[in-house]
Amino acid sequence: MKYAMVIDLRRCIGCNACTIACKQKNGTPVGIFYSHVNVYETGKYPAARMKALPVLCNHCDKPPCETVCPVGATVKQSNGIVTVNADKCIGCRYCQEACPYEIRQFVKSNTEGYFPDKGLTQYEKAMYPTHQAGTVEKCNFCQDRVAQGGKPSCVQTCPAQARFFGDLDDPKSEVSKLIAANDAHTLRPEAGTHPNVYYIG
């Protein structure tokens, strides 16, 4: 079993719905985004085009974050998902240095909310304690949802249906078929981490 994601850039409209879906699914504090979309452009007028590149943890086959973690907080699970155990994390942030995708997030505080002069809202009081200040967090492919047969929130929410998720070890899975049928690529392959988020287009 090796969970992977495919993102079809031909379909992505760069709306950042996935970014906010992830934020609310995980109840992340201010400034913490496990996943986001870079919106940019290419070309010269009038042949210019707006582009969008959604990025998230690549759940690499050879995750350098796991290698460098001094306390074994970051672990590649048998299903391919790379997880972080917040209880073990000592917040050294070595993993952030090691990650070629700069996607890991350091939680400075779990008590500062979006309304600095007004205190935490009931929602924030409910959700922020699930984040340990002084630790590093990242996407875990919504492992709780996936364990129940669901999809990661970013995949389900995408208005353009540009994201796909599944088992790369299964040649009949949607992700396997998409990769086989298209010229799929990964980000920064030269870093040698063997990422498992593929892009088409």
Binding site: C15, I20, F115, T121, Q122, Y123, T157, P159
Partner: peptide, 16 residues
């Protein structure tokens, strides 16, 4: 599916 706004509905409600 839900757009960025639909995904942000919680912050409409829990807004001091």
């Amino acid at each position: 599916r839900l757009c960025p706004r639909g995904n942000a509905a919680i912050m409409q409600m829990y807004n001091p």
